[in-house]
């Protein structure tokens, strides 16, 4: 192992150029510009903004059936249902008629009123997830909670109906 003296002796072998380079490196790294952190502008949009594609009649019927029955319709049934929608001029009316026909069929999976009222917040979140594929905002949750609590006639079926009729449900 070399003594400290011998290491000192070896220093002159670096030469003046070596020392200059070392100093330059030292100063160059020590002059790094201080980082500045900024915020990008982000536009705040209402919920559901990213949904800008309107569902076709068949997409609407297929998703509605899946949401209500947790079960898929056959391609043939979807084709026939599409024809029925085409045969009615007011598409909003056509959708109402189709939803109310679905609601009249056995096999619709809807929580009962007592379950909904036992945990309204959970019901609202589950309904938004099921139909609109997103979380409700606090404002939406509050509005629906107040609305459900204020009116004993508001049943899960009526709420499902309103979600299936909403404009947002028409888009994906």
């Amino acid at each position: 192992m070399p003594s400290s003296r011998s290491r000192f002796r070896s220093f002159p072998h670096w030469g003046k150029a070596g020392i200059g380079a070392a100093l330059l490196l030292l100063f160059a790294t020590s002059c790094t510009k201080e980082l500045e952190y900024e915020l990008n502008e982000v536009q705040l949009n209402p919920p559901g903004t990213i949904k800008d594609n309107e569902k076709t009649n068949q997409q609407y019927a297929a998703i509605l059936h899946a949401n209500l029955f947790q079960d898929a319709m056959s391609a043939n049934e979807l084709y026939e249902l599409d024809q029925c929608i085409q045969s009615i001029g007011d598409k909003e009316l056509a959708r109402e008629v189709i939803i109310s026909n679905f609601m009249n069929k056995p096999g619709v999976i809807i929580p009962d009123d007592a379950t909904m009222r036992a945990n309204i917040d959970a019901f609202i979140i589950e309904t938004y997830n099921r139909f609109l594929v997103r979380q409700p905002t606090e404002a939406e949750k509050t509005w629906f909670r107040n609305y459900i609590e204020a009116d004993p006639n508001v049943t899960p079926e009526i709420i499902y109906f309103s979600f299936a009729m909403s404009n947002e449900y028409l888009f994906y």
Partner: peptide
């Protein structure tokens, strides 16, 4: 109430 809730949902959208 169904139309009222729909109107609320439509307003959000």
């Amino acid at each position: 109430p169904m139309y009222e809730m729909k109107a609320f949902l439509d307003n959000s959208f």
